[in-house]
């Protein structure tokens, strides 16, 4: 494990701050993109271009009455929204935003990411259970089942990347993509990872956990005020985080395409700025993809999600892993 330096704290602080902001920006972006897709205008009354809309939302949510259902479990009901937020914030610790720009380099960073990411489901499930509402309960159960089903293909897809690098460190994975992004070497893995990431972040077409049309709000039906606001922000943070993971594992992290072949040596400052810009740009694209898909595609049914996860994605990801491993072992050597 790398030494914790002052840089680590600065990067971590900036990253956490930007992640919180990015959630707000994503909320705004979602409303604008949705409006664009639907031939509408979108928020434009608050501040320039309606940019202050998320702030208005958050202030309003903060000052709203907080309700706990009478027969709900008050402690869990309060704790549940914290979990997804905290786990989302924890993930940024190991993600490299540029060459040498990362909070810490854990040698088992991939495992850490997978472990932390799978924790957030507890928040959703507990929220569903502690609300004492049937709609929430159904939402929570769906969340638990869905998360478990899609953790596996997600993990296998990541594993198929790890064997290229030969290291569990996220920083090494990012470094290894300087010339060849893993999406070119391992396209099937990338597709599986994207699908599983959509499922992990509970976004359409996998948003059965919320399922506004069937379950009203799913797990957060009974949440009001800032507790709901935290779920709301956590959802968007997870969108951002999952976009970052896609970028990190498959789309070259902070590297420009085939950067190793043509990019000249740059001064550390310029290189740092370029890296972070490239990383943010790619992340923004995937966030847009998330929003785009959300507003155009219908939602799966529960049994279809399960079927897709267990009978298609999981075998496919295992086969993909074995084939890559075989190729690497026998051919590349």
């Amino acid at each position: 494990m790398a030494e914790v330096t002052a840089t680590s704290y600065i990067v971590l602080g900036t990253a956490l701050f930007m992640l919180l902001n990015s959630a707000a920006i994503t909320v705004y972006a979602e409303r604008r993109v949705a409006a664009f897709i639907q031939n509408r205008v979108g928020p434009n009354r608050v501040g320039p271009l309606g940019l202050l809309q998320p702030i208005a939302d958050v202030v309003k949510l903060l000052l709203k009455e907080d309700v706990t259902p009478t027969h709900g479990n008050r402690f869990l009901h309060t704790m549940a929204p914290v979990i997804p937020v905290v786990t989302a914030l924890m993930t940024v610790a190991v993600i490299p935003f540029g060459d040498g720009i990362y909070a810490t380099d854990i040698n088992a960073g991939v495992l850490y990411l997978l472990a932390v990411a799978s924790l957030s489901v507890y928040g959703v499930t507990l929220a569903g259970w502690a609300s004492n509402s049937k709609f929430s309960l159904l939402g929570g159960l769906r969340a638990a089942a869905q998360m478990i089903s899609y953790e596996l293909p997600l993990g296998m897809a990541v594993a198929s990347v790890v064997i290229f690098v030969g290291s569990l460190s996220v920083v090494d994975i990012a470094l290894a993509q300087e010339t060849w992004w893993f999406v070119f070497l391992n396209p099937l893995g990338a597709i599986i990872f994207i699908i599983a990431a959509f499922a992990e972040s509970n976004r359409t077409p996998f948003d059965l956990v919320e399922a506004e049309q069937e379950l009203v709000g799913g797990f957060h039906t009974e949440y009001s005020s800032m507790k709901f606001g935290m779920f709301f922000l956590a959802e968007y943070m997870h969108v951002v985080i999952n976009s970052m993971l896609m970028v990190t594992f498959f789309f070259g992290s902070y590297h420009l395409p085939f950067a190793g072949l043509w990019l000249p040596e740059l001064s550390p400052l310029i290189k740092g700025i370029l890296d972070v810009t490239v990383f943010v740009g790619k992340t923004a694209f995937f966030v847009f993809l998330f929003i785009w898909v959300r507003w155009t595609i219908p939602r799966f049914k529960f049994n279809q999600v399960m079927k897709l996860g267990w009978s298609k994605l999981l075998p496919l990801s295992i086969i993909n892993f074995i084939v890559i491993a075989a190729i690497l072992y026998f051919i590349v050597g």
Partner: peptide, 23 residues
């Protein structure tokens, strides 16, 4: 809430069907 009148301009297009989150 539709395209011609578009209440989202006023920040009110978030139709919350759960009463807990509505104003």
């Amino acid at each position: 809430a539709g395209p011609r009148y578009d209440v989202s301009r006023f920040g009110s297009e978030v139709m919350r069907f759960s009463p807990r989150q509505a104003d």
